[in-house]
């Protein structure tokens, strides 16, 4: 790893200002992505700006109509939060399936999202609950929909210097299920991951690791949402639409064909479980 300047700003504004001073500066949260890339020489930052001192909100807040998760909340905090486990158990599940306990004790949800891997484990549940991300450039804040935050492999809607401050999740009585398949049971990147969510009889289907970003499959959702009664045939039709939409690649973790089969089987299963239909 090459040397760099390490900066511990004490405000968001300070962090952004520092960031903007160069073309090769990076924010540091848990470091579980960043330090790996630096070690491999893929990133050679001039300045590392530590967000942990910059006054970003951390922790999980329960408000009346929404839940707020600070960008610096660790995956362990989310996994073990009794509140998240009760209200968005599938997000807790997703957090608990990311990396190992050693990783999760450091890795932040903000880092997982800003790293913007198509396989990021916390992305599909957040898109499914229609979370919004609060982004800050030190002066102004703006909100983007989770779904619109991801722009491509390792690409986000963040503008230069902007950072992810907080995640806002509307409270609802919906139910969701997260599923992740990897080569080994735990501590592996997803071959595929997904969240299927149901609130007020409306479904949301989000698939990860099968496109350049996590992908919400609206066509399949509509198929289910329009139907009067959900039966196996309809679920199969919806699953077929999912398969039609995703564009997985073949890589070290599995072939495109295999990914499609995994998605087909499990999206069917998850919808079935939420709809109370035996599949």
């Amino acid at each position: 790893m090459e040397n760099f300047e390490f900066i511990s700003p004490i405000t968001i504004k300070g962090a952004v200002n520092q960031y903007k001073k160069g073309a090769n500066n990076y924010y540091l949260a848990g470091g579980t992505d960043l330090i790996v890339l630096m070690r491999e020489g893929i990133l050679v930052p001039e300045k590392i700006i530590d967000l942990k001192t910059a006054g970003l909100p951390s922790g999980i807040k329960k408000l009346k109509t929404e839940i707020r998760i600070g960008a610096l909340a660790t995956l362990s905090e989310i996994e073990h939060s009794s509140f998240i486990r009760k209200e968005i158990p599938f997000l807790a599940e997703a957090a608990g399936k990311l990396g190992s306990p050693l990783t999760r004790n450091r890795a932040t949800i903000g880092g997982n999202l800003c790293n913007a891997s198509p396989a990021a484990d916390t992305a599909t549940p957040l898109i499914a609950v229609e979370a919004k991300f609060i982004l800050s450039d030190g002066k102004k804040e703006r909100r983007v929909k989770a779904e619109e935050f991801f722009k491509g492999v390792k690409q986000t809607d963040l503008k230069k210097g902007e950072l992810l401050k907080e995640i806002v999740i509307p409270r609802s009585a919906g139910k969701g299920i997260f599923y992740k398949k990897s080569r080994i049971k735990l501590v592996d990147l997803a071959t595929v991951n997904m969240t299927v969510y149901r609130a007020k009889k409306k479904y949301r289907i989000v698939i990860g690791a099968c496109h350049i970003t996590p992908l919400r499959i609206r066509a399949a959702e509509e198929k289910l949402n329009k139907a009067k009664k959900i039966d196996l045939a309809l679920i199969n039709d919806a699953a077929a639409l999912v398969i039609k939409t995703i564009k997985p690649i073949s890589d070290m973790r599995g072939s495109a064909e295999y990914r499609k089969q995994l998605v087909k089987t499990h999206v069917t299963r998850l919808i079935g479980e939420l709809a109370g239909v035996e599949v």
């Binding site: 330090i35 004790n105 450091r106």
Partner: peptide
């Protein structure tokens, strides 16, 4: 690279890979 746990220490009360902490 954070993958093996041989470097684990208790950091701020919980175990973490010290190879991925500056």
């Amino acid at each position: 690279a954070g993958e093996c746990g041989a470097c684990a220490v208790i950091y701020n009360g919980s175990p973490a890979s010290s190879c991925l902490i500056l």
